[in-house]
Design a protein around this nucleic acid. Structure first.
Length: 473
RNA sequence: GGCGCCGUAGCCAAGUGGUAAGGCAGAGGUCUGCAAAACCUCUAUUCGUCGGUUCGAUUCCGACCGGCGCCUCCA
C-alpha cells in the first residue's frame, strides 16, 4: 500500500505525493510561548512527530519547520505585567517547550524559526500585499482585504454569509472595510516600545499580526508551496484560512497541498482542554504525579487515532504505561533469548504478515492504534513460541525487526533506562545469598524494600532480572 | 442560527456490506519457595434508539436521543 493521508482541503484520504521526488517540505504550527504547553498542545506536537517519522520510514527526506510564536497579544499583556521585555518573558517558556519535547522523545525539526527573528520577511510580504491591493492601511494598522481573495473559506468550508451575526466579532475598533478582514500589522502603542515589541516598516512602526509569521517563515525555509501543513483543528479557522489567503495572494502559488489537522485532547470531564477555560494539564503536572513521560507519549499518539478526540484520564494513562511495559518486557525477552533450535516456519510467515499489516496500518492515514493492536496480537503468539522454545535465530531477528518497526514511530522501547545503582546490585546479590540458604523471609524483605523504591525483581531460569516500576504507594 | 464530529464490553479503543482487532481492569488455571513476568481459559449473539435500502448493516440512508467541536484568544 502507498501512503494515504486525510487532507482537510479535500475531506478525503488522498494518496500522498510530494512535489519533489523523495523530499517532503512540511510546516507545522508550533507553540505560542506565553506559558507552559499543556498536554493537549503536546498531542499536536507529537502528531507532527508521528508524521515526520512515518515519512522517513517511507523513505522520504523531510524538511520540517515548526515555528515558535514569540509575539502576540497574550505575550504582550504578560510581559507588560511582569515588567520585562517580551524577549525576556518568553525565554523560560521556549526553553520549557524544548525540554518537554525532549522528554517526550519528539524528533527535532530541521528549523524552529521565531516570529521576532523574521520581521523583515513579514514586512516584505505585507508590502507585496499592499502593492497588490490585497491589503490596505487604516490608521496605522494594515489589514488583509478578504474581498480580494474569492477562495477564502475553502479550507474550513465556512460560508461567511452563514456566520453567526455578531459572534465574537468585536465591534469595529478600527477602520476596517469588513469585519472579517484580519490584521497583518498593528500600529505600535507607546507601551509596546518599552517591552521591545515594535519594529519599523514602510507602512509605519508596529508589530506583526498573528497569521503573517507562518506565511513569511514557511516561504523563507520551504518555498512558496508546501507539501504538508499541519496543526490542531482549532487552527483551521481562522489561522490556516488566513495563511492561505496571505500566501496565495502574495505568491500566486498554491500554499499547501495537504493539510493535516489533529483533534483535541479533552480534559477529564470531556470538554476541550484549554488555557483560557482554565482547565489544562501540563507535562510537568503529570510527571510530578508519577507518570512516565514515555507512557504519556504512548497515550498521546497511540491510544487513539489522531483525528479522534481523546479524554485524558488516569485509567487511560495507566493502560498506556502497561502497554509500554509489556512492549519493553517482550523486546527484552527476545533479546535475551539464545536460540538453539531450528526456525519455526509458521512463526516466520506470521511475523512477515504482521510487519506488512503494520506498515499498511500506518500508510492508511497513520493508524498507529491499529498498528499497535496488530503487533500486540503477535507478541502474544511470539511469547507462546518463546515459552515452547520454538524460536530460531531467524525468528528472533524478525521479531526484533517487528519491535523496531513499531519503535520507529512509538520510540518507547529502545529509550534507555537509568543505570542500575551499585547498591541495588549489592542487594540483589545479598538476596541471592539468602535464597540459597533458604532464608526466604530475608529474601522477601529485600525484594519488598526494592519494590518500595521502584525496583521490581523477577526470578527466572536465566537469573534475577530487575526493572523500574512506579514506586509502591 | 450555520458548518462538522462522535456514541463499539466495567474503562480506553481499531474496524469492515458478510457476521466484532488490541490494551487496561476482573475471575480461574499453568509455572514459581512465594511472587513477578509469560502463556492458557473466561468476560459484547452484539456495535445509542427507531425505521429504511439490501440476500445480508455495527458498517449505507433517514429520523430521533445523548455528548462535543468550530463560527476571528486557542494545538
Amino acid at each position: 500500500m502507498t501512503l494515504r493521508l486525510h487532507n482537510s482541503l479535500t475531506g478525503t484520504k488522498d494518496e500522498f505525493q510530494p512535489l519533489e521526488n523523495r523530499h517532503v517540505r512540511m510546516y507545522t504550527c508550533g507553540p505560542t510561548v506565553w506559558n507552559y504547553a499543556h498536554v493537549g498542545n503536546l498531542r499536536a506536537f507529537l502528531f507532527y512527530d508521528l508524521v515526520r517519522r512515518h515519512l522517513r520510514v517511507s523513505g522520504y527526506r523531510v524538511t520540517h519547520v515548526m515555528n515558535l510564536t514569540d509575539i502576540d497579544d497574550r505575550i504582550l499583556d504578560q510581559a507588560m505585567h511582569a515588567g520585562t521585555t517580551i524577549a525576556e518573558f518568553v525565554k523560560p517558556y521556549a526553553q520549557a517547550f524544548f525540554e518537554d519535547m525532549a522528554a517526550l522523545r519528539a524528533e527535532r525539526a530541521e528549523h524552529y524559526p521565531r516570529a521576532t527573528e523574521h520581521i523583515n520577511e513579514m514586512v516584505d510580504m505585507i508590502s507585496t500585499l499592499i502593492e497588490n491591493e490585497n491589503a490596505y492601511i487604516a490608521d496605522g494598522d494594515v489589514y488583509f482585504r478578504i474581498a480580494s481573495f474569492p477562495k477564502y473559506g475553502e479550507l474550513s468550508h465556512l460560508d461567511r454569509a452563514g456566520l453567526k451575526a455578531g459572534a465574537r466579532v468585536a465591534a469595529d475598533k478600527y477602520e476596517k472595510e469588513s469585519v472579517s478582514d484580519f490584521a497583518l500589522w498593528k500600529k505600535a502603542q507607546p507601551a509596546d516600545e518599552r517591552i521591545g515589541a515594535a519594529w519599523d516598516a514602510p507602512f509605519g512602526r508596529g508589530r506583526p499580526g498573528w497569521h503573517i509569521e507562518c506565511s513569511a517563515m514557511s516561504k523563507r525555509y520551504l518555498g512558496e508551496t508546501l507539501d504538508i501543513h499541519a496543526g490542531g483543528v482549532d487552527l483551521m479557522f481562522p489561522h490556516h484560512e488566513n495563511e492561505i489567503a496571505q500566501s496565495e495572494a502574495a505568491n500566486h502559488a498554491t500554499f499547501a497541498r495537504v493539510w493535516l489537522h489533529s483533534e483535541h485532547l479533552a480534559d477529564a470531564t470531556g470538554d476541550k482542554m484549554s488555557k483560557s477555560a482554565g482547565s489544562f494539564t501540563t507535562l510537568r503536572h503529570l510527571v510530578n504525579a508519577g507518570h512516565d513521560p514515555l507512557a504519556i507519549r504512548f497515550f498521546l499518539i497511540a491510544n487513539a487515532h489522531y483525528r479522534s478526540r481523546v479524554r485524558l484520564s488516569p485509567e487511560a494513562l495507566h493502560a498506556a504505561a502497561e502497554q509500554v511495559r509489556r512492549l519493553r518486557e517482550f523486546a527484552d525477552r527476545v533479546n535475551r533469548t539464545s536460540p538453539s533450535g531450528a526456525d519455526d516456519g509458521e512463526l516466520a510467515r506470521k511475523t512477515a504478515d504482521v510487519r506488512a499489516a503494520y506498515r499498511d496500518a500506518l500508510d492508511d492515514d497513520l493508524n498507529l492504534p491499529q498498528g499497535v493492536g496488530i503487533v500486540f496480537e503477535h507478541i502474544r503468539e511470539a511469547n507462546a513460541a518463546l515459552d515452547a522454545g520454538r524460536v530460531g535465530p531467524l525468528n528472533q531477528a524478525s521479531l526484533l525487526a517487528v519491535i523496531d518497526d513499531l519503535d520507529a514511530h512509538l520510540d518507547v522501547v529502545r529509550a534507555e533506562e537509568p543505570g542500575l545503582a551499585q547498591e541495588v546490585e549489592r542487594l540483589i546479590a545479598e538476596r541471592e545469598g539468602a535464597r540459597k540458604t533458604r532464608d526466604f523471609a530475608r529474601a522477601d524483605r529485600i525484594r519488598d524494600e526494592l519494590r518500595a523504591r521502584g525496583i521490581a525483581l523477577e526470578d527466572s531460569k536465566e537469573g534475577v532480572r530487575w526493572r523500574r516500576i512506579a514506586p509502591a504507594g
